[in-house]
Amino acid sequence: MDGGEELTEQETALYDRQIRVWGVDAQRRLSKSHILVSGLKGTVVEFCKNIVLAGVGSLTLNDDREVTEETLAANFLIPADENAFDGRSIAELCCDSLKDFNPMVRVSVKKGDLSSFGADFFDKFNVVVISCCSLATKRMVNESCRKLSKRVAFYTVDCRDSCGEIFVDLQNYTYSKKKLDETVECQLKYPSFEEAIAIPWRSLPKRVSKLYFAMRVVERFEEVERRKPGETSISDLSNVLKLRKELCLAHLLYAMQSLNESQIPDALLERLIAVTREFPPVCAVVGGILGQEVIKALSGKGDPLKNFFFYDAVDGKGIIEDISNS
């Protein structure tokens, strides 16, 4: 495997229990990985905690927003002492706490707007995780990662009300897994975010999670209305329902005998636009799954998720959906 460096005694002692789960090689690869996160909402904060504890090489935080009551709601990294804020950004405040979690991980802040970073910026990372950003930014960052000569794993994550969504793009991903007694090479081909969401709904397999469609409607709504991510309320419902109809038509959902608008229930859309605050237990669940997936992708151990994950606390299901042409 890559690199022959051994873990230090300190690392072996600290990571003992997890090395027993994923092995020394995986731990070594983790400690050489560099991760960028942008948009420090509750779910991403959970993810940051998980990945810092796991012992990645470095974590770069990007979020210039100032602390508000809402940002504090699902954030356990920011101490309650208001004097400590002192005009500092969310990323700066989270950085201090995360450093403290694991002195062996380099945690730093990158200021600036995500959409202003050039492709070469992303080249420094092995994993890019973005949250609460516009559809255009998602596309742009995803494409930037894809243009690079080395593979940069790309993830988006968003939670609204009791629902969460993860998207994964590992491009062309090869990994080994144990099947019975032999190790076999597996290959997965991921579509980009743009490619995935462009797949006509009529050609998707039956029984794709309703959340997939609902999230696309809300995402599109925010784009056409030029809203900031999460800037919706119940008063938008009629327009959202209108947009749902248009999208269903565009994707020829009507043409399908069994599928229609009810595939995207009113009540679900209502929840997603009315309660844009995160629900902390859902952040823990989705941030946990995301942490696990990033560890898998970095260590090359285990089947990675392809390519969407949905969780809704209302029915309790955590579902993987493969939205691709392959």
Binding site: R17, R20, E46, A54, P281, A284, G287, I289, G291
Partner: peptide
């Protein structure tokens, strides 16, 4: 040591997920 000490495999992510489910 793992065998003799009955050491349980443990990672942060699973505990985080489970804690969320407990609260729900």
């Amino acid at each position: 040591k793992g065998i003799a000490g009955n050491i349980v495999h443990a990672v942060a992510t699973t505990n985080a997920i489970i804690s969320g489910l407990i609260v729900i």
